[in-house]
Design a binder for these strands. Structure first.
Lengths: 220, 220
DNA sequence: CGGGATCCCTTAGGATACTG
DNA sequence: CAGTATCCTAAGGGATCCCG
């Protein structure tokens, strides 16, 4: 048994031995959005040392979580079917962590992949199914995402969304809209969200569709 | 920003900064079963160095995940309401890790708390609700647990269950019963499960109530 | 330019012993 | 019971360099 093994016959332990090392679940988070090249991963995880990225990729491969796929030009890393099973884990983590996010550090970045996953964790299929289809172009920081909600399903694509019902720009303050701390109307009024195009009333639908509770942890 | 920060404004990152360190989620796993003293945690995590346990407990406290509660005699650690929100994360991890468990290392241990959580991850409320109530006494390794299933809810209590509908003993092979690789009848026949008391037919109900898919990760 | 490998240094984590 | 203190190893961080 490895010296670094937790030494228990337990599903949680097995999982942590596969993806519990530092950075591993963030690599998985980004790969849940789609296959990525080494360079994409490095760009999406600006603070990961390159040797650690290489090491993690090897470990995840050895664990059957990801696969290297040669491409015409270069290669990509991709989750295996087993690895895709981590979606529940990552979404649960994101949902739980949302409550504790607080204000961003000035040095914090927001990447397209992390934001895509964040929107997936906040997405409420039941609510979306009960509302008319909608499309949004969201610009958060430097990230531009196209969101399409139809039939209770969400599609997130990087880049602009021509013809979106609503195009808006926001900063980290979007957090308070998703948590419900700030109503859509207030958000527009206070400049937390800036409507660039389309129907401002659609921001209500957005806030209903994407929602996560965020009561801060009481000392209790 | 700490040198060890991941540097992203993202729920997953926030969560990992709170409970992503080595051993942290295993401490949480055990506390999900109930409040525990320092010594209980040490016993339930035989390979954790005591200084690391102390460090993690401080960090988890600082993060609002756990709380120290003084007792008449000594003190216990307990999840806060925020910390209890990690149940989804731990169960999702356990569910995913179950598929990769394989054979136990000879040095691996099974603790009462880890087994309690494992049974919770495998529990199917829907199936249980459709079946008559049942009680079991499960002896896995040295661990003895009382299981009560009623109205689609599961209660796990450490220790024997006098009057249980079925009392059985098993080793790690119970994994194959829960995964469905081995049918209850086969399990009894091959000695994977030994019925000590009660109605052997109840093992069918057990296997229906506690189930997790376990196809090993295909190379695909 | 994509996909790493290497080097050095810092610090977290492991093992063990000891204490209020 | 509930931790500190110590020593040592190995993992992680940062920068740079290399190769097809």
């Amino acid at each position: 048994m490895g010296a670094r093994s937790y030494g228990q016959y337990c599903g949680v332990v097995t999982a942590l031995e596969l993806v519990g090392e530092r950075w591993a679940l963030l690599i998985v988070r980004d790969l849940l959005v789609g296959p990525r090249r080494y360079t994409d991963l490095k760009a999406g995880l600006p603070r990961i040392p390159t040797n650690i990225l290489a090491a993690r990729l090897k470990e995840l491969q050895a664990g059957g979580v990801i696969r290297r796929v040669p491409l015409a030009h270069g290669l990509v890393y991709q989750l295996t079917e087993f690895g895709r099973g981590l979606e529940d884990v990552v979404l649960a983590l994101g949902r739980w962590g949302f409550r504790a996010m607080g204000e961003p550090d000035p040095a914090d970045v927001v990447t397209a992949d992390s934001l895509t996953i964040a929107l997936r964790t906040a997405f409420r299929p039941g609510v979306a199914a009960a509302l008319p289809a909608a499309s949004y172009e969201a610009r958060i920081g430097d990230v531009v995402l196209a969101l399409d909600v139809a039939d209770g399903a969400l599609t997130v694509t990087p880049g602009p969304r021509p013809g979106a019902g609503l195009t808006f720009a926001a900063g980290p303050g979007i957090h308070s809209v998703i948590s419900g701390e700030v109503s859509p109307a207030e958000a527009i009024e206070r400049g937390v969200v800036e409507v660039l195009d389309g129907d401002p009333a659609l921001l209500d639908r957005f806030a209903a569709t994407f929602h996560l509770a965020a009561e801060p942890a009481p000392a209790a």
